[in-house]
Amino acid sequence: MTLVVVTGAGGFVGGHLVRAVRAQYPHAQVRGTDIHHPEYGRSEADQFLVADLRERDRCAEAVAGADVVFALAANMGGIGWTHAAPAEILHDNLLISVNTMDACREEGVRTVVYTSSACVYPGSLQREPDSAPLRETPVLPAEPDMQYGWEKLTTEILCETYRETYDMDIKVARLHAIYGPQGSYSGLRAKSLSMLCGKVAAVPGDRGEIEVWGDGTQTRSYCYVDDCVTGLLRLAESPVDQPVNIGSEERVSISELVARIAHIAGKEITTRYLPDKPVGPLGRVSDNALCRRLLGWQPDTSLDDGLRRTYRWIEEQVAAHRSGEVVTR
C-alpha cells in the first residue's frame, strides 16, 4: 500500500493537504507529522507523529517507508514573525530542510514535493505596486526576502543538487500568499489577509477602525488553499523537474483588500495606516504561464469567493472566542 507523508501536517496548508490526499488516494495510507497537533480540529491522517524535524533521527522516523513525501514543515509566519525571529527561522528551517532531504534520500522515497515560496524572488523585481508578475526564471543574482527567503532559495539549490547527484525525483512549488479557513488570524504568525479579516471581524457593531501596516498601496496576489493543495497534488504526479509557481494572478492592493473584507462583513471600516511598520515587497504577483504549460492547470478560485469563505470562518472563531466557546471546524 502506498504511504504518503505530509510534514508540517499540524499547520494550515498541511492540514488541508492531508484531507486532499485522503480524498484523492482513498487506498493510500497517510502519515502526518509536525512538532504539534493541528490548532483547529483533529488531523485526518491515518497516523500522526509528533516529531521535531530539526532532529535527524526524528526526521528519519517521519519518512520511514514513505513512497511520497510532501515537505511542508517550516518555522514560519507573517511579516511580523519574519521580522521578530530571523535567526530562529533561518536556523530551524535549514535543519528541517537538510534533514528531510537526507532522510528521503536514505529511505529511497520515490517522489518528494518541497514547498518553497515567492520570497525567493529578488527584491529588485518587486519595488513598485504595479511590478510585473514574477516568472520562475529570474531568481539570480539572489536577493530574496529576508532570512526566510534565503533559506527557501538555499533549499531549492539543495533540491536541484540532490536531484542531479542522487537521481531523486524532487519537485519544487513556489507558493504565493496562501490563505483560507483554519489559518492563524492573529498574532505575529498570521499572514496579511487573515490578519485583516480578524481585525475586521473583531470590530464590534457595524463600523469601526483598524490598523493596517504600510500605506495600503502595496499589492499582492492571494491563492486560496484548495487551489494550493490541488497544485501540489498535480505537481507530485507530473514529470516536472523545475520550480513552478502556485499562486493567483489576481492583483489587489492592501487598501482594496480591506474594502473587500469590509463589504463581505457588512461593516463600515476606516483604516489607520502605519507607514513605519514593515510591509515587504511593494508589488508581488504570480505569473502562471509555466504552471499552465507544465501542469495544464492554474488556480482558479476568485479572490472574492475565497475571501467570503475565509472571512466567515474567521468571523465564527472571533465570535466563539468572545463567548468563551471553542470552534474546531
Rank of each mutant, 00 (worst) to 15 (best):
V4D: 05
V6Q: 03
T7P: 02
V13T: 13
G15S: 12
R22M: 11
A23E: 06
A23G: 02
D34F: 08
R42H: 14
S43M: 05
E44M: 11
Q47I: 15
V50N: 15
V50Q: 13
R54T: 07
R56T: 08
R58A: 14
E61H: 09
L72N: 11
G78S: 07
G78H: 03
H83I: 09
H83W: 08
A85R: 13
L95S: 02
L95H: 01
L95G: 00
T100L: 02
M101D: 04
R110P: 00
T111W: 02
V113M: 11
G123Q: 12
D130N: 11
L134P: 07
P144W: 07
D145W: 06
Q147H: 14
G149W: 09
T154M: 06
D169Y: 09
A177M: 11
S184L: 15
A190H: 07
A190M: 10
K191H: 12
K199M: 15
A202H: 12
I210G: 04
D215L: 04
Y224C: 01
D226G: 08
D241N: 05
P243M: 03
V244T: 02
I246V: 10
G247Y: 03
S248C: 04
I254G: 03
S255A: 14
S255M: 11
A265P: 04
A265V: 05
G266R: 14
K267W: 05
R272C: 10
P275V: 04
K277D: 00
G280L: 11
N288T: 02
L290S: 08
R292F: 01
D300R: 06
W313H: 01
V318K: 08
R322L: 13
S323V: 11
E325Y: 13
V327I: 13
